[in-house]
Design a protein around this nucleic acid. Structure first.
Lengths: 136, 136
DNA sequence: GCCTATATTGAGACATATTCTCACTTGGAG
DNA sequence: CTCCAAGTGAGAATATGTCTCAATATAGGC
């Protein structure tokens, strides 16, 4: 059974077919998705899922810190699973996004958590500039 | 004279009163602003600034890499000046944002720039979690 | 300072994204 | 199995962003 589903159930949310479809879509997704993509994919699993249900489910998942909105370069936010860190190298000109792994945020994270009394679950590190093709 | 104004002029853009109002708002802002806030503040400087002018000016500033969209927790993106790095500790629950200074992204930035042939101007590092008040 | 070509403007139409409302449905505790 | 609060989809309402166009204002040439 999906992790998301377990979390929702444990938090007292009912597991309905439309909701389950949305959960499955998000859980199986490696990258990030727009709400409209989520709607389409969810409808492929359970025909007739409504737009509102996608947004409602996203709200719950955000509250439970299972999913996080992220802005890359498009019109609206995309959503992705919360899982440690995400690292992007973004070209401000053409919008190309390169993902990278190396990240030394661990120490800083511990320090900040202690100092500001936060429980930290994930982070986002993005560098902005111009890619090879776009720098003239 | 404002830095933004100088940049626009140098790039061949005309300096008009409405545009100047928008520039002033963004230039004087320390944090981040929604387009709707920008509109209001710009209208306080020059009555009658149109919504389109705000978006048009933001587009120019984005192209010139003077300003960058950023997603915190609200509905849409906010905009902030590009200036090295921005560092936020964000509570996913209540939306509180703590800014911090310490950041060791410099080395990584140089490495990535070389490897992916990017010219990097700025970065964003955000940690997500729950603040003291929100963690139960 | 005046003139002109042209970039820029605001209004409001349009397009898109998100939220809300409400009558109907359904999961799951008892 | 029953019951009812939680959840649902449709579509209205709102929020956000883009486009068009006639009117205006800037900056450079004189």
């Amino acid at each position: 059974m999906g992790v998301f589903k377990t979390h929702l159930r444990r938090s007292g949310y009912k597991i309905t077919a439309p909701r389950e479809a949305v959960l499955a879509v998000l859980e199986n997704e490696k990258g990030h998705l727009h709400p409209s993509d989520i709607l389409l994919k969810a409808r492929a699993i359970h025909a007739g899922v409504g737009r509102a249900t996608v947004y409602r489910t996203l709200d719950i998942l955000k509250m439970l810190n299972l999913v996080r909105p992220i802005y890359i370069n498009e019109a609206g936010p995309s959503y992705m699973r919360v899982a440690g860190g995400h690292h992007h190298l973004v070209c401000s000109n053409c919008g190309k996004v390169v993902e990278f792994d190396a990240c030394n945020a661990g120490d800083l994270q511990r320090k900040l958590a202690r100092k500001h009394r936060f429980v930290i679950q994930s982070h986002l590190l993005e560098f902005y500039g111009q890619c090879e093709d776009c720098r003239n």
